[in-house]
Every structure is written in C-alpha cells, then in structure tokens.
C-alpha cells in the first residue's frame, strides 16, 4: 500500500465541478492500492488567478498553510494534488520558500499568526507523476481487463499540467504521456495538434467570448482528427471544454457534442470498474462512446 498526503482542492470537493475527477481518482487509487490521506482543514491554493487580489505573500501564504498542516499532520510525505492549478501553485510556493530566504521568513511570520510554520521539504506531485513514476507503465497496462479497443481519444494535456514544470521531463510542445496513457487502456490516441493549446483558463469567466474561441479551436481539432472523446488531466480544461460546448455551439455556430473525460475515468473503466466507479454518470455531456465497454 502506497501512502501519500492528499490535497484535493476546491473543485474536487463533494458536489463541486470536478467531483467526477475526484470520484474516479478514488476508484483508481483503490484498484492500485494507493492510500490518499487528505490534509485536514486545508484551504484554497489561491489558484492561477489569485495573484491579482492576493499579490505574492498572501497568495503563497495560502499554499504555505496547507504545507504547514500537512507537515504537522503527516510529516514530509509526498503531497499529491490532482488539480493542475493546485499542483502548480503549491510547487511554486514550495520552491520559493526553499530558495528565497526573505520569502521563507515573511511567510513564516504570517503563518505564525495561525500558529503554524513551514520550512519547505514537502515534495508536491501531480497524480499523473505518481502513476508514471511510482506505479509504472507496466502495471498501468497489466491492470487492464476490459481494453477500450477501438475507442478514439484525443489526449488534451492543456497548459498547467504541462508548463512550467512539465510531467516527468516530457516535452512542453509535444508531451506524449497522455497519449501513452490512452494507449495503455487499449484505446487509440488520435493525432492532436492542439494538445497543449490553452483553453482560456480562468479567463473563461471574465472574457468568455474570447476564451470560447480558443476552446472551439481545441474541440474542432479533436473532432477533425476523428476523436470520439477528449481526455484531460486538468479540471479547468475539463470544465471549459465540457460546460461551454453548448454556448460555443450557440454563439459560434458549431455542433459539438463530444464528452470530455479524465484519464482516471478511462483507467477505471478499462481496469474493470463500473460506470459508477468511473464517475461516468457525472458527465454533463454523457459519455456515450464508452457505453460499448461498460
């Protein structure tokens, strides 16, 4: 049994937008024998847009508080995040605390107000890194009992799982790990030139029309390349691509109806998990192309 400290992040909460990710990841970890120990009383990571209201120190203090709680509760065990934005802001905070004495000092002065302290040394990892590095490709493949043969999937890596840190040294411009994951389930990864294009991120809320144009290009490319589903590791991407499809169809004259799934959902199904285990009932655009494997 592998154990990790777990930071689910706001969108993975019960009844939150990435509940399907959270539920399928829990199923995935059950099958793999991974235990995720959630940090008690964690707070928001401040996400990618927190800089504007929070600046540097308040923004980083939020992540630092989570680290401090983690250290107190679970020691320096590796911390796993499932959301790209959480992973990114926590890694960034940890790096700056470890590298900049001034930041470390200020952050700890602030943490002290909450009766906490943090001196670095917790490694923040993305769930996909755990799969690739700790579980390994062989195991991921060997667990498959219901290969998704014939399923055509576009692996959409997006931005923040990919940049600036990257996953396991994969390329920024053409990362291959997600395609490899798709192929590991027996499905086919279609060529997908937009795999690292931006979905608009948080600007989907404030600059919806502009962001929809970006999202439309991504959807179009997936469809043009014959994908039946799009697979992503990122809850922001998932949300933007799925929930705004209706609006894009309406405003940009398209006719998309393509399910947007998490890699974890694909794994759970291929590993013999149920529709429910894979949280496939939680798709706003129903995962019809997967019905044939259920």
């Amino acid at each position: 049994m592998k154990e990790y400290t777990f930071f689910p992040g706001c969108s993975s909460e019960h009844n939150a937008s990435a509940a399907n990710m959270e539920n399928s990841i829990q199923s995935m970890c059950r099958i793999l024998g991974i235990q995720l120990n959630e940090i008690d009383d964690w707070n928001c990571c401040s996400a990618s847009i927190g800089y504007a209201g929070g600046g540097q120190l308040p923004r980083m203090a939020m992540s630092a508080r989570n680290f401090a709680l983690a250290q107190k509760q679970k020691g320096n065990t590796d911390l796993v995040a499932t959301c790209a934005a959480c992973w990114l802001s926590m890694r960034e905070t940890n790096e700056r605390i470890e590298e900049e004495p001034r930041i470390k000092q200020d952050i700890n002065t602030a943490l002290a107000e909450a009766g906490l302290s943090y001196d670095g040394h917790i490694k923040t990892r993305h769930m996909v890194e755990v799969l690739i590095e700790d579980i390994g490709w062989e195991t991921l493949q060997s667990k498959v009992t219901k290969p998704l043969t014939g399923l055509k999937a576009a692996g959409y890596v997006g931005c923040q799982t990919n940049r600036p840190f990257g996953v396991c040294g994969d390329s920024y411009e053409n990362p291959l790990y997600l395609d490899k994951m798709i192929e590991a389930t027996g499905a086919t990864a279609v060529p997908f030139p937009m795999k690292v294009a931006c979905c608009g991120g948080a600007l989907m809320f404030s600059e919806t029309e502009k962001a929809c144009v970006l999202t439309k290009q991504i959807l179009q490319s997936a469809v043009d390349n014959g994908a039946e589903v799009i697979i992503t590791p990122c809850p922001v991407c998932q949300l933007n691509l799925e929930v705004y499809q209706g609006m894009i169809n309406k405003t940009l004259g398209t006719n998309f109806n393509i399910p947007i799934l998490y890699y974890s959902q694909l794994f759970v199904l291929a590993w013999g998990g149920s529709w429910q285990d894979a949280a496939l009932h939680q798709q706003v655009i129903p995962a019809e192309p997967l019905r044939r494997f259920a």
């Binding site: 009383d41 707070n43 120190l57 980083m60 939020m62 107000e113 909450a114």
Partner: peptide
C-alpha cells in the same frame, strides 16, 4: 474552514 480565524490573521499579516 475550521481554522478560519488564524487563516484570516495570516492573510492580514501577509498583506
């Protein structure tokens, strides 16, 4: 969150 008080003070200090 449970530690909301400390959380707020922390943010004030950080600011």
């Amino acid at each position: 969150i449970k530690g909301y008080d400390g959380f707020t003070k922390m943010l004030a200090k950080a600011a």
